[in-house]
């Protein structure tokens, strides 16, 4: 449905040219959610703009429903729905008027009334868009993207600024689109969103694809889960020196006091036993401990910090 191959995008800068995208490639399939995940400024929105054909790639190829989307005709536009990050909604009209107007641009639009019910737009349908809250605009933007019953939908940060209820409504609708066979491409900087929604995750950092695959594939790259525990008192040099030498003990510097310690290299129960034996030797009683599977967050941190360390 969508295919990007070695897409570059650069813009003129003070000295030469600045590369926003340095070779982005990925495919998005029908009936799947493809999430572009990455920190702010990674190039997610630029990638999306190029995929939609609003922006032009400096080099590389883009195929959306088989054609180059840049300056594509009305036929292609009628099959692709877009929700922009900042909405792009006209301020002076009401949500209802906008949706009914958009519906007239298509021969077989969605039922606007049902769409408004589904996204709970009815409660503010008569209000000018300038007077809507961020979450209300977000839901309206989503509705606008779906008016043409598209085969491909682009959602730029769909959960930004949503309260928990709106978030649930939007997420359920994304699941429903997926079941209907729509190809969904979304960006997010929230790992839990990607983990929850995405069939295919494309990790983008500094204009490059760092990793891509299903959530399972990405999180399965390292099967040894980290073991963490929290101690109320600081460890002495002697205690640290006595720690089982085949394991590594690192202090999680991101957490505040009391300190959280992370043990790498746990392979099985024997390793856990070595740690608890060490506690016993030094009379250490953790206030909290946990053995969790690797989350997308761990992968994300590994990928986004590995060469900075």
């Amino acid at each position: 449905m969508l295919s990007l191959t070695n897409v570059h995008r650069d813009v003129p800068a003070r000295a030469g040219r600045f590369q926003i995208l340095k070779g982005v490639s990925f495919d998005a399939k029908a009936g799947e959610v493809t999430a572009l995940l990455g920190p702010n400024g990674a190039g997610k929105t630029t990638t999306l703009s190029i995929a939609q054909g609003i922006d032009k790639a400096s080099s590389g190829s883009v195929k959306l429903l088989g054609v180059d989307p840049f300056r594509a005709n009305a036929g292609l536009r009628s099959q692709v729905g877009v929700m922009l990050q900042e909405g792009g909604l006209p301020m002076a009209v009401t949500g209802e008027r906008l949706l009914f107007h958009l519906a007239r641009l298509y021969q077989a639009p969605a039922n606007i009334s049902a769409l408004m019910d589904r996204l709970q737009i009815r409660e503010f349908k008569d209000r000018q868009i300038r007077r809507l809250s961020g979450g209300q605009r977000q839901r309206l933007g989503m509705a606008a993207a779906l008016v043409g019953r598209p085969r491909v939908v682009f959602l730029d940060e769909p959960s930004a600024g949503l309260d928990p209820v709106s978030r649930l409504i939007v997420f359920e609708l994304i699941e429903e689109l997926k079941a209907a066979g729509v190809c969904i491409i979304l960006t997010t900087h929230l790992l839990e969103d990607a983990q929850r929604l995405a069939d295919h995750v494309v990790l983008i950092r500094e204009g490059r694809v760092e990793a891509a695959g299903s959530v399972e594939e990405l999180t399965a790259t390292d099967l040894r889960p980290p073991f963490t525990f929290r101690l109320s008192r600081a460890l002495t040099e002697q205690q640290r020196a006595d720690f089982p030498s085949h394991l590594t003990l690192v202090e999680d510097t991101s957490s505040s006091q009391p300190a959280v310690w992370r043990v790498n290299g746990i392979h099985g129960p024997a390793d856990l036993h070595a740690v608890t034996a060490w506690w016993l030797r030094h009379d250490l009683m953790p206030s909290d401990m946990g053995l969790s599977g690797k989350s997308l967050e761990d992968v994300f941190w590994e990928l986004t910090t590995h060469d900075k360390a």
Partner: peptide
């Protein structure tokens, strides 16, 4: 309440230029 049907439309289905101009007008 009408059920929301979001089954994708398989063929391009832009309105004709005339209807779009009237609507936009």
């Amino acid at each position: 309440m009408t059920k929301l049907d979001l089954t994708p439309v398989e063929e391009p289905h832009s309105s004709t230029l005339l209807s779009k101009v009237i609507a936009q007008g």
